[in-house]
């Protein structure tokens, strides 16, 4: 019975993280990206400057640690396939989803080395600035890793970096507003 419950809970979690990742990607791609193209044509074709899935990665890593790698991988692989199709299946491009799914947990692990611990039970668990610092650190890891995997450089690295960071900030502020609205409505 315990095993059945654990498997059911794990599967529900996987589905929620997958759905969150895909919805975040669709919002970035279908809402923010067209606005970016119209307002900042210099960045056209480089990267999305508000990449919300990065925020999903950071929050999932904050909540679930290294387990987030497994939870994020299906969403990251799906988005990679949606963006690059079968071209993305060759090496090293195929490594891109793995880099993306692991950068959040790796960033929190790196921050622990400088005594910024956000694990459950740690005094700074609920410090949003630590989470944002992890977002920035993971965006560096992700940008460098993704640009290596996808064979791009230069302005694209900067665009990936900015997109990841802005994506994390926009997602956190958006969720804050949703929770605030929910609380005011008594939900």
């Amino acid at each position: 019975m315990i095993i059945v419950t654990a498997v059911r809970d794990g599967f529900a979690l996987l589905m929620v993280v997958f759905a969150a990742y895909i919805v975040a990607f669709k919002l970035s791609f279908n809402v923010f990206y067209p606005v970016q193209d119209a307002l900042l044509p210099a960045f056209q074709g480089h990267a999305m400057l508000v990449f919300l899935p990065h925020g999903v990665k950071v929050l999932a890593a904050w909540l679930y640690g290294w387990k987030s790698l497994l939870l994020l991988l299906p969403g990251a692989a799906t988005v990679h396939f949606l963006l690059f199709g079968s071209d993305g299946l060759s090496f090293p491009e195929v490594m891109s989803p793995l880099v993306g799914a692991s950068c959040g947990a790796a960033a929190f692990a790196l921050l622990r080395l400088v005594r910024l611990d956000a694990r459950p039970g740690a005094p700074r668990r609920l410090d949003w600035k630590v989470v944002l610092a992890a977002g920035a650190t993971s965006s560096v890891l992700n940008s460098v890793g993704t640009c290596w995997a996808n064979g791009v450089a230069g302005a694209s690295v900067f665009a990936y970096l900015l997109g990841d960071l802005l994506g994390t900030v926009v997602l956190m502020v958006g969720l804050m507003l949703v929770f605030r609205w929910g609380r005011q409505k008594g939900l």
């Binding site: 904050w62 909540l63 956190m172 969720l175």
Partner: peptide, 17 residues
């Protein structure tokens, strides 16, 4: 697990507020 995650997320973002 989901309830607990949602509660932690709310607490984190309440700090931003």
């Amino acid at each position: 697990t989901l309830l607990s995650s949602m509660s932690q997320l709310r607490a984190l973002l309440f700090g931003v507020e």
